[in-house]
Simulated scan of single mutants.
Amino acid sequence: MNIKSITPTEVAEKLNQKHPLFLLDVRESNEVAICRLENSVHIPMNLIPLYLDKIPDEIDIVLYCHHGVRSLNVANYLAENGFDTDYLYNLSGGIDAWALTVDTQMPRY
């Protein structure tokens, strides 16, 4: 699959420009309790198959996890299950990169 990467800075710019994004957090609940992106939807990676109908299509979807590995796997899974790769983006470096570059006050783990 050809899943596009997007940097934290690019996501922040899109959000500032009110570009419609579906932020999909695929981390575990204990990770989300530490930090999360505002207005993101949390569906743990292992529950994605049960919630495919809760994920919109025809809108840019930015998937993220801690460092970007799990979210890339989920993005590939979505593509294999009919989601258009034109709308799928993996947050490069995950929420950790976001905390390092966009929101330096965000707790890291």
Rank of each mutant, 00 (worst) to 15 (best):
G82K: 06
N30H: 14
Y51G: 07
F22E: 02
N81R: 12
A97E: 09
V26Q: 03
R108F: 04
V69Q: 14
T101K: 10
N76S: 13
I61H: 04
F22A: 05
K54S: 10
L24A: 02
Y64N: 02
L47S: 15
I3L: 06
V11H: 08
N81M: 03
S71Q: 04
M45A: 07
P20L: 08
N16Y: 06
N30K: 14
I3N: 01
C35M: 03
L78R: 05
I59A: 01
I48A: 01
S40P: 01
E13A: 13
E28R: 08
L88F: 03
V11M: 01
A75W: 00
L23S: 01
T7Y: 06
V32K: 09
R27P: 01
N16A: 15
L47E: 15
M45P: 12
V26A: 00
Y51F: 14
V69A: 14
H19R: 11
V41D: 00
F83L: 05
I59P: 00
L88S: 04
M1Y: 15
S71V: 03
E58S: 15
P20A: 09
R36Y: 12
G93N: 02
H66A: 11
N30L: 08
Y64D: 10
H19N: 10
L21R: 01
I61F: 01
E13S: 13
N16K: 15
F22Y: 13
L50R: 11
D96L: 15
L24N: 00
M45F: 04
A33P: 06
P20Y: 07
V62F: 03
Y51P: 04
G94M: 11
Q105K: 15
M106G: 08
D25A: 09
M1A: 15
A33W: 00
S40A: 14
L21K: 08
K14G: 06
R108H: 11
N39G: 02
F83C: 04
D103Y: 04
P8K: 09
F83S: 07
V26M: 08
C65S: 12
S29D: 09
Y64T: 03
P56C: 09
Y51V: 01
K54P: 00
N81S: 05
H67S: 11
I43D: 14
L52R: 09
H42K: 02
V11F: 05
S5L: 04
T9N: 12
K54T: 10
L91H: 02
A79T: 12
A12Q: 14
L78I: 03
N81I: 05
E80V: 06
P107N: 08
Y77T: 00
E10R: 10
L15D: 07
T9I: 15
D86R: 15
A75I: 05
E28V: 04
P107S: 07
I61Y: 01
A97H: 06
P107E: 02
L91Y: 07
V102M: 05
A75H: 04
G82S: 07
I34E: 14
A99V: 13
L15M: 13
E10L: 11
A12L: 06
H42M: 07
